[in-house]
Simulated scan of single mutants.
Amino acid sequence: MSALKDQLHSDLTASMKARDALRTSTLRMVLSAITNAEVAGKEARELTDEDVITVLVSEAKKRREAADAFADGNRPELADKERAEAAILADYLPAQLTAEEVAVIVTAAVESTGSAGAGMKAMGRVMGLVSPQVKGKADGGAVATEVKRQLGA
């Protein structure tokens, strides 16, 4: 079992003992999503820490999007709950990169591929280099925006 999954299980037990309903429900939800990912596909497999982080990133993104939707729908109490769940999930994710750090990574990728000024044709090459470096550490939309900006698209 991955160390991160073990940590989630032990934190779930601790939150249940502490009667922290929000943390308990959030951890149960993410452990359920991890289990679903493990049994998805043709055969069951054990997820690595990197795979668990991918699931956590996906669940955190769902919470942010739901919070925005609830806020737009004039349901602030539900939006607050979704934001609180996203904050709990953020505790288990790697530290997020700042916009400046993303810009430095993208600049290095543009230079190494020789794509400066190539426009959208080079987007795939640059994103192929950048994505593994920022996986779980930065929002994909923000990274894509920075790549487009630097490619002059």
Score class of each variant (00 low, 15 high):
M1S: 09
S2V: 10
A3G: 08
L4M: 10
D6F: 09
L8Q: 06
H9E: 15
A14T: 15
M16Q: 15
K17G: 04
K17I: 14
R19H: 15
L22D: 10
S25I: 13
S25K: 14
T26P: 05
T26I: 08
L27S: 02
L27G: 01
R28Y: 06
L31R: 05
A33M: 05
I34T: 10
T35K: 14
E38F: 04
E43W: 07
E43G: 14
E43R: 15
L47Y: 07
L47D: 01
T48P: 01
T48F: 06
D49T: 13
E50Q: 13
E50K: 14
V52E: 00
V57E: 13
S58N: 12
E59L: 11
K62P: 03
R64G: 03
A66Q: 10
F70I: 02
A71V: 04
P76E: 06
E77C: 03
A79E: 02
K81Y: 04
E82S: 05
A84I: 03
E85N: 08
E85V: 05
I88V: 15
L89D: 00
L89H: 02
D91G: 12
D91C: 04
Y92R: 01
Y92P: 00
L93H: 04
A95G: 08
A95C: 05
L97F: 11
L97N: 04
E100G: 10
A103W: 02
A103K: 15
V104M: 11
V106A: 01
T107D: 15
A108R: 13
A108I: 10
A109N: 02
S112F: 06
T113K: 11
G114Y: 05
G114E: 07
G114P: 02
S115K: 02
S115N: 06
A116P: 07
G117D: 03
A118V: 07
M123S: 08
M123W: 07
G124P: 06
L129S: 07
V130R: 04
S131Q: 14
P132S: 07
Q133L: 15
V134I: 15
K135C: 03
A138R: 00
G141F: 06
V143F: 02
V143I: 09
A144I: 12
E146R: 07
K148V: 10
K148Y: 07
K148L: 09
K148W: 07
L151H: 01
L151Y: 00
A153L: 08
